[in-house]
Simulated assay, not measured.
Amino acid sequence: MSSNKGGLDKAKLFSSKELEIATDKYNENRILGCGGQGMVYKGMLSDGRIVAVKKSKTINEGYLEQFINEIFILSQIDHRNIVKLLGCCLETEVPLLVYEFIPNGNLSHLIHDQNEEYPRSWDVRLRIAAEVASAISYLHSSASIPIYHRDIKSSNILLDEKFRAKVSDFGTSRSVGIDQTHLTTKVLGTFGYLDPEYFQSSHFTEKSDVYSFGVVIVELLTGKKGNLDIWIARKEGLSLVFYVVDGRKPFAGYC
């Protein structure tokens, strides 16, 4: 990480004591969410800033690699629609990452939760889609090193106080050479958002991220979950995307 240009210079090193105080000793009441890599807690630093602290679930080499990878990736990124990594703690057995706090949950909650406080107008949905598209375009074409996100989905798109999109969760992301056209890698991602070509060939390209973004667009249009195929696949082997392509109408829409 130290050899990375910019690297940890852009990320503060927090002490374990500082983060323990900030999260009230990782109080259950401070839990914001739980992902594949770890638990996320709301914290308040000594200067009054509200932050989100991600703590790895277990002492696991795979999780450790993903946490280090996220530090490496996010230290190279500066885009208003991508969540900012403020720093990390390297004193503990399990790694700790500290991010800017994003107050309005994620896009999945906005689409699927029956909460009247969430604005669901077409203008808001179109703006969010444009912001996510801008972030993905930046990762692929404007970052210092091209980056494939590899897990674009509505639950990884956070919403700030003005419901602006912030793409998050870069644990499985990979940087690639400027002239590199694809990654050959173990298939990772979320069922329902996976590019079928990537699933079959293990070749991940920038179009694989675009496919996942397309599923998010369909979610915004229909109000149905992108991983609908968890239950449909057992009956017909179809996903939300294939239902749309096939012209079926299993739902009334989101208007």
Rank of each mutant, 00 (worst) to 15 (best):
Y211K: 06
V241M: 14
L240E: 05
E219V: 11
K224M: 10
F213T: 07
S239W: 10
S212K: 01
T205Y: 03
K225A: 08
G223S: 00
V210A: 00
S212N: 04
I232V: 13
F242Q: 15
K225E: 02
E219I: 04
K225G: 05
A233G: 14
T222Y: 00
K224A: 02
K224E: 13
L220I: 11
V210N: 02
L240V: 09
K224P: 00
K225H: 11
L238W: 00
G214V: 09
K224G: 03
L220Y: 07
L240F: 13
V241C: 08
K207G: 04
I232D: 13
V215N: 11
R234N: 08
D229A: 09
D209V: 06
V241K: 11
G223H: 01
L238H: 02
K235Q: 10
V241L: 14
V210P: 03
V218N: 11
G214H: 10
F242D: 15
G237M: 07
I230F: 08
G237I: 04
H203P: 02
E219C: 04
V218Q: 11
G237P: 05
V241I: 11
E206T: 09
I230S: 12
T222W: 00
D246W: 05
I217G: 09
K207A: 07
L220P: 03
K235M: 09
T205N: 01
K224I: 09
K249L: 10
K249Y: 10
I230V: 12
S208L: 07
E206D: 13
L220C: 07
K225D: 02
G247H: 06
T205M: 06
E206L: 09
R234Y: 02
S201T: 15
V215Y: 05
V215R: 11
